[in-house]
């Protein structure tokens, strides 16, 4: 085990505290590879843009292989949290610690999937997936790997198309294949399904769940859709004004049946907290 610190500042002594429900180990449905996911911890992370603080000393510990959903109203700091996690921004103070056994390349530790697919319009679908495979030397191997990744997301037959002819859901699946290409330990998802229609969205959620179960990475899903959060995550974290306002376990077995009373109850708890504190 080695701890990688993504901050120049010395790490605070980890004061891990949890609001809401006590934290339990993530229920493992199946173990794909012993070190497929990475654990991480935000330790007193503060992020300010000029005088405006977005995160106020946030603490969050996520074990390897967990599926965590982060929800909150727009502007609550949830996207900032993801940018810090993926190294797009550095915290103003505090530290983010990673624990990934056997990780060779810190740059490939995390991958992010955005709300927009962000595919290169001038590259064929398969070449877009290869963007995530730059660590492979051999061109033939890149092509072979990209094709098998496309098969995983059900787009093997569209490899030679331009992205512009794909539907929104298909483009997002290509983006998923690209994000998974380098086998990241942590996959950060920034409302990746927000722009899709309701049915495509549910399909994509199922695809995401299946791939997560297969590969065992740590998934952090930022979303404003409470139903999506409880359907997918082991644990839902509610961020409010730069702090964690609620930290709730979703101890339901998978596959989860949409519209089941337990899901509805948990959704209700979260919505109440989300809307109740607004009044």
């Amino acid at each position: 085990m080695n701890i990688a610190l993504r901050d120049a500042q010395p790490a605070f002594s980890p004061q891990v505290r949890f609001e809401g429900a006590p934290f339990l180990a993530a229920p493992k449905v199946q173990a794909p590879a012993p070190d497929a996911g990475a654990a991480f911890a935000f330790q007193g992370v503060r992020k300010a843009f000029g005088p405006k603080a977005v995160l106020h000393g946030l603490d969050l510990t996520v074990p390897a292989g967990a599926f965590v959903a982060v929800i909150g109203k727009s502007g609550c700091g949830k996207s900032t949290l993801l940018r810090l996690l993926t190294g797009l921004d550095a915290p103003t103070s505090g530290a983010i610690a990673f624990e990934a056994s056997g990780a060779k390349d810190p740059a490939r530790l995390t991958r992010v999937m955005f709300q927009e697919p962000r595919l290169l319009p001038w590259a064929r679908v398969v070449a877009n997936v290869e963007v995530g495979l730059s660590h492979l030397r051999s061109k033939a191997e890149r092509r072979r790997t990209a094709l098998s990744l496309l098969a995983d997301v059900g787009l093997a037959d569209r490899a030679d198309e331009w992205p512009s002819v794909l539907s929104g859901g298909q483009r997002q699946r290509v983006a998923l294949a690209r994000a998974l290409a380098s086998r990241p330990r942590i996959l950060a998802l920034d409302e990746p399904l927000g722009a899709l229609d309701a049915l495509t969205r549910i399909e994509m959620q199922q695809l995401l769940e299946r791939i997560w179960l297969q590969q065992g990475f740590t998934a952090v899903l930022v979303t404003h859709d409470v139903a999506e959060a409880v359907a997918l995550a082991d644990r839902v974290v509610l961020v409010e004004e730069g702090r964690i306002a609620l930290d709730l376990e979703i101890p339901l077995p998978r596959p989860r049946r949409r519209g089941s009373p337990e899901l509805a109850r948990l959704e209700g708890v979260i919505l109440e907290k989300l809307l109740g504190s607004a009044a």
Binding site: L88, R108, V112, F114, E116, R118, L120, V131, G132, S134
Partner: peptide
């Protein structure tokens, strides 16, 4: 957004320019 994507995926400056 595409440039940010390229950076995240670890493209070198030359790769970013060419691709």
């Amino acid at each position: 957004q595409l440039i940010e994507m390229g950076r995240i995926y670890g493209m070198s400056r030359i790769a970013l320019f060419v691709k």
